[in-house]
Simulated assay, not measured.
Amino acid sequence: MTLTIPTLLTLFRILLIPVLVAVFYLPYAWTNIAAAAIFLLGASTDWLDGWIARRFRMFSAFGAFLDPVADKLTVAFALLLVVERHDTPWMALLSAIIIGREITISALREWMAQVGAHGLVKVAGLGKLKTIVQMVAITCLLFEEDLLGLPVFRIGEWLLAVAATLTLWSGWDYLRAAWPAMRQKG
């Protein structure tokens, strides 16, 4: 198996997860800024690997499998860290919605592929918008501090609520698209 540049970037994103966790728990005042920067770097490589793959036609089956896994792992671990530090019912609920949707849609995609209807649950524009809002929200939540008078953490909370709403909406779209196949007798 040849590793393409997009796949190497995806692997790098996965390797950033333990770095993010380690930095998050370091006993220094700057670790929130470093954790936000690490998460933002990972989010940027997500965009970059997709752009390179499309632009230079560097597709691989392994990369197609690994990219969404990297995305879901990164988001899940980052949200766990945020809830660890800000253990409110609101933060836990929003995080549970986002993580729960990711697990559900992954299972749905796997099942749809097994029944030969995987084309019904492809990533749509709404899912991409959800991802962007989610990545900005998590970066703000990890950063935590006010910046230039802006309440970055509060902005992150609101953006996470928007991301959770988009998560439910796009999840509903996926389920609705898959419903005819799900209703068939097996």
Rank of each mutant, 00 (worst) to 15 (best):
T2Y: 12
I5D: 03
P6R: 01
L8N: 08
F12G: 00
L15M: 13
L15I: 08
I17V: 15
I17C: 04
P18T: 11
V21G: 02
F24G: 07
P27M: 07
A29G: 06
A29N: 11
A29F: 06
N32C: 00
I38W: 02
L41I: 15
L41H: 07
G42S: 07
G42L: 08
G42K: 01
A43M: 02
D46E: 05
D46M: 10
W47L: 14
R54D: 06
R55E: 14
R57G: 00
F59P: 01
F65L: 12
P68V: 09
A70W: 03
F77Q: 02
A78T: 09
V82G: 07
V83G: 01
P89S: 03
P89E: 01
M91W: 11
A92C: 06
L94D: 02
L94M: 15
S95F: 02
R101L: 05
T104F: 14
R109W: 05
M112I: 05
A117H: 13
L120V: 13
L120M: 14
K122S: 10
G127W: 02
K130T: 03
V136K: 10
A137Q: 05
I138D: 01
L142H: 08
E144T: 13
E144R: 11
E145N: 12
L150N: 00
P151N: 06
V152L: 01
F153N: 03
A161W: 10
L166M: 05
T167R: 04
L168R: 01
W169H: 04
S170A: 05
W172C: 06
A177E: 15
R183H: 05
